[in-house]
Design a protein around this nucleic acid. Structure first.
Length: 258
DNA sequence: GTAATTGTTCTAGC
DNA sequence: CGCTAGAACAATTA
């Protein structure tokens, strides 16, 4: 699925291609996940100008004129595709954005779980790339939960999902089974650095490979998270286990604090 | 036919 | 009561 780095690149690409354009028609194929009726959404957005696209945690936010904002959460299988002459109605379409100049893009999801939200409420939970070390370290200090569970908790930090949590923990050489408050200060600092580094590097790589396209996930550079990966770059056997029902990949190189 | 997939939300339990 | 862990759910593919 798309996680923070993918979404950051999607936002960038959408800005490059569609910023400033006027939305002529909004095609609504699946309305059941929207927080308003399809009719209300069309009324709110059709005829408005796309002012800017941003990323908020795991959602994309399309800012239109008249202060209308559409948040889009792609959930686990949602994707964005470009529309052109040959491809006006992609498979599994949820929403189709058709601009006045004939260009457009669509949100597709084979599981129909992508969730569009008109004018989503603002939250005070910091985004993974925007939080600072004091926040991160005081958060860890008061939580008894497993570190991986905490990294993925959207009420604490927004943007990190199952796969990048594994990558970040491996990079920091900390076991996902560590208890958050038991991790010593030095290791917390290291984890914070790894978090920023892994995410920023992923944005870079995806951005480079994706160009101006809107292809799905690109994760060839994943080092430990993936059923087909057998060894870490440093040669350690990759083990897998379940944490909170999610498959977790890790190696013995990672220290466990408990 | 069945397991696997994954973020969110709800519920049960300590 | 507050916090944490786990189950349920959505829909499709391998």
């Amino acid at each position: 699925m798309a996680e923070l780095p993918d979404l950051t690149v999607f936002a960038k690409t959408l800005n490059k291609r569609f910023k400033g354009k006027n939305l002529e028609r909004l095609e609504i194929k699946v309305a059941k996940k929207i927080n308003v009726t399809g009719k209300e959404l069309k009324t709110a957005l059709e005829g408005e100008k796309l002012v800017q696209v941003t990323r908020e945690g795991k959602t994309l936010q399309l800012h239109f004129s008249k202060d209308q904002v559409l948040g889009i959460h792609l959930m686990l299988r949602g994707e964005l595709v470009l529309l052109d002459q040959e491809n006006q109605e992609p498979k599994f379409e949820i929403l189709g954005f058709h601009f006045k100049d004939g260009t457009g893009f669509a949100v597709v999801d084979l599981q129909k779980m992508a969730t569009p939200t008109l004018n989503p409420e603002k939250t005070t939970v910091p985004d993974a790339l925007e939080m600072d070390l004091p926040y991160f370290s005081s958060l860890l200090a008061k939580k008894r939960t497993l570190i991986k569970t905490l990294l993925m908790d959207q009420h604490m930090i927004r943007g990190i999902g199952n796969s990048y949590a594994d990558e970040i923990l491996w990079h920091a050489k900390i076991s996902p089974f560590s208890v958050a408050k038991s991790i010593p200060e030095q290791a917390v600092k290291k984890l914070f650095k790894s978090l920023m580094l892994v995410l920023e590097k992923a944005i870079d790589e995806i951005s480079k490979e994706n160009g101006d396209e809107l292809t799905g996930e690109l994760r060839d550079f994943m080092k430990v998270h993936g059923a087909k990966i057998e060894k870490s770059p440093t040669g350690a056997i990759i083990k897998s286990d379940k944490i909170g029902g999610r498959t977790t990949y890790y190696t013995d190189e990672q220290e466990i604090y408990s």
